[in-house]
Computed example of a mutant assay.
Amino acid sequence: MFVRIVKLSFHEENIPAFLENFESIKDRIRSAPGNKLLELYQDKNNKSIFFTYSYWETEADLENYRNSAFFDEVWTFTKKLFNDKPEAWSVDKLASLV
């Protein structure tokens, strides 16, 4: 299993549109084959910065999602709201203490 972390930074006036859209699509993202977890975080100090954390069974599962028509639709909408270039990391999960 590995984790995909994406940092998204929005113009302040676009935050409501982003959150409304995320609310409407989050279940579809979560139900993508191989997706095991989807979380959204907002920075405590800069309310314009968000992070998504998604857990995937395999890199192929993430790539299949990223190459889907659904992802293209989501990304086309979301990228218009940015105030900075998004950043993304794919990391291997080594330990988890719950």
Rank of each mutant, 00 (worst) to 15 (best):
F50H: 14
L94G: 10
G34N: 05
N46E: 08
W89K: 15
F18L: 05
I25C: 09
G34R: 04
G34C: 08
E13T: 10
D92H: 10
L81M: 00
N35G: 09
L40P: 15
N67S: 13
K85C: 01
F71C: 08
E73S: 04
L37M: 06
N46R: 08
Y41I: 05
V6W: 01
F2Q: 13
E63F: 01
E87D: 11
W56R: 00
N35S: 12
A60V: 13
V6R: 11
T58S: 09
D61S: 12
R28A: 13
S54G: 05
D72F: 05
F22A: 02
D27K: 11
K7A: 04
V98P: 13
R66P: 13
N67L: 07
N64S: 04
A95W: 11
Y65G: 04
F50I: 12
R30F: 04
D43Q: 06
T58R: 11
V91M: 13
S54N: 06
L40W: 06
L94Y: 11
V98I: 12
S96I: 01
E87M: 02
S24G: 03
F51S: 04
E13A: 12
A95E: 14
L8Q: 08
P86S: 03
R66I: 11
W75T: 08
K93H: 08
R4N: 15
I15S: 06
D84N: 14
V91E: 15
K80D: 14
